[in-house]
Lab assay of single mutants.
Amino acid sequence: MEVRTIKVFTTVDNINLHTQVVDMSMTYGQQFGPTYLDGADVTKIKPHNSHEGKTFYVLPNDDTLRVEAFEYYHTTDPSFLGRYMSALNHTKKWKYPQVNGLTSIKWADNNCYLATALLTLQQIELKFNPPALQDAYYRARAGEAANFCALILAYCNKTVGELGDVRETMSYLFQHANLDSCKRVLNVVCKTCGQQQTTLKGVEAVMYMGTLSYEQFKKGVQIPCTCGKQATKYLVQQESPFVMMSAPPAQYELKHGTFTCASEYTGNYQCGHYKHITSKETLYCIDGALLTKSSEYKGPITDVFYKENSYTTTIK
């Protein structure tokens, strides 16, 4: 009895394709271990004539594949690729409408935090270190965002349907971005203890939790000093293409032309909904596939993004 075979390709990165001759009487799992086709788990399936010449994702289970996976995804987590594939199996079914010149995501599976993050990423200057993220990001900007969303979920250790947080998501993504040249110098002034300067680099240099107003941050924000008295913390120097200011959701007025974009969060910790506000020729609110415009805006804002380049204080 002759062994019926077909020729397929296996890959971990969709760049390096490895030619395989597979036995049609055995499952993919018996031949390769966990195997995925377009995100779908085909591990328990036997090869079919229609699979001839198709590319299958496999887990990096030998040295060659491990090197290829690390170079593309910059992670050695053995569960990463499987999590990416199972997320992709959902995100490829989502709709990605162009809204006001940006790629958004039609609401499904509690994905409003991903839509808000995706919209924000198209408006701030950011370059990702893992080629996987950078490639998928370019495709997302062009309207094909399924891979990018699935990668975000995998890097953030999230599953489809789980509630997510924009600030946490951005923080994970910033860790995989090139923020080497970003720098922030802060000064804390206390009447009792004097003053202390701190220099922050990388992710810490672009994120701040405690106030939404970048102007206020430049002037000074009140913080408790270690001595128990009130101290003032203010920005001395900022070198970065953008800054992200966050605070627990509270009524906040966004003035046209003073910011790049913002995240609105309605609801409580267990259950809520994100919308995205962007400042173009007027203010726009993007909620999944829905767009509304207004000249002014007041609502429960939790993150505001500002364009920056270089700032030095005039406070002496």
Rank of each mutant, 00 (worst) to 15 (best):
D23H: 08
Y269M: 15
K229I: 07
I105M: 03
S294T: 14
A250T: 14
V166M: 07
L153R: 03
V58M: 08
D23N: 12
H176V: 05
L254V: 09
A108V: 09
P78E: 15
Q197F: 09
Q197S: 11
H276Q: 02
V236I: 11
H18P: 05
Q230R: 11
G164M: 02
N89S: 10
S50E: 15
G299T: 04
T314C: 15
C261P: 02
K275H: 02
L291C: 14
Y252P: 00
A115S: 08
I315F: 15
H256T: 12
L133N: 02
H256P: 14
G299Y: 02
Y28F: 15
G210M: 05
Y96V: 04
K106F: 12
I223L: 08
D23R: 10
Q20D: 07
L119C: 05
R184F: 02
D38P: 07
R139W: 09
F305H: 00
T35R: 07
T169F: 08
Q222N: 10
C271T: 02
L59Q: 06
Q30F: 04
G257L: 05
A117E: 05
D23W: 10
L119Y: 06
V160E: 05
L173W: 00
T27W: 08
Y297L: 07
Y306N: 02
I277R: 02
K93F: 12
N61D: 13
V206K: 03
V206N: 02
Y311E: 15
L133R: 04
K95S: 15
Q237Y: 14
T5H: 10
Y28C: 07
N16T: 09
A177D: 05
T11Q: 07
Q30I: 11
E125G: 11
E162L: 02
G202I: 01
Y269C: 15
Y28Q: 05
L235K: 04
I277S: 01
Y208H: 10
K191R: 12
E239R: 10
V166D: 00
S86F: 09
Q238V: 01
L102D: 02
T11W: 05
K183V: 10
P249F: 10
S104E: 08
K218R: 06
Q251R: 14
A142R: 13
V166C: 01
S181C: 12
T76Q: 14
S263R: 05
Y137S: 05
Y84R: 09
T169R: 08
E281N: 06
I152T: 09
V304R: 01
A136H: 09
V206W: 00
M1I: 04
Y297G: 00
V160N: 00
P78H: 12
I277D: 06
D63Q: 07
Q196Y: 14
A142W: 07
N268T: 14
I124C: 06
V203A: 15
S294E: 11
L102Y: 08
K280V: 09
P97D: 00
H51S: 04
K275I: 05
C112R: 00
G161K: 07
L290W: 11
E125P: 10
V42R: 07
K218Q: 04
K158A: 06
I124T: 04
Q237D: 09
Q216P: 08
S86Q: 14
G143Y: 05
Q238S: 01
C285T: 11
A87P: 07
G143H: 03
G257F: 00
F174W: 07
C271I: 15
K183F: 11
I277N: 08
S86K: 13
E2K: 09
G202P: 02
T103S: 02
P60D: 12
S213T: 05
L126A: 06
Q134G: 04
Q230G: 06
I286A: 02
T314Q: 15
L173P: 02
D109I: 02
V185L: 04
M245D: 01
V3I: 11
L65R: 11
C225F: 02
C193W: 07
T312Y: 11
Q196L: 09
A289E: 15
K7S: 12
M85S: 04
L118D: 04
G164C: 02
D13F: 07
I223P: 01
A250K: 12
T91D: 03
P78W: 14
Y172P: 05
V58G: 08
R4Q: 13
A247H: 02
L133M: 04
R167I: 01
L173F: 08
E264Q: 09
R83M: 07
E253A: 11
T192K: 08
I45A: 12
D41N: 10
D23E: 11
H48Y: 07
E239T: 10
V99H: 11
S240E: 00
H176C: 05
P78T: 07
I105K: 03
Q238T: 01
E204I: 01
T19Q: 05
K7T: 12
Q195V: 15
A140N: 00
K127D: 15
T312I: 11
P224Q: 13
H90C: 11
Y234F: 09
G299A: 10
T292G: 10
Q251K: 10
T43D: 09
P131C: 00
S263M: 09
S86C: 14
H276S: 06
E264G: 09
F80P: 03
N111T: 08
I152A: 10
V8E: 11
F217V: 10
T35H: 15
T35V: 13
D303Q: 01
L133F: 00
L121W: 07
A87T: 06
D62L: 08
K92F: 05
Y172H: 09
S246W: 06
Y73W: 04
L179D: 02
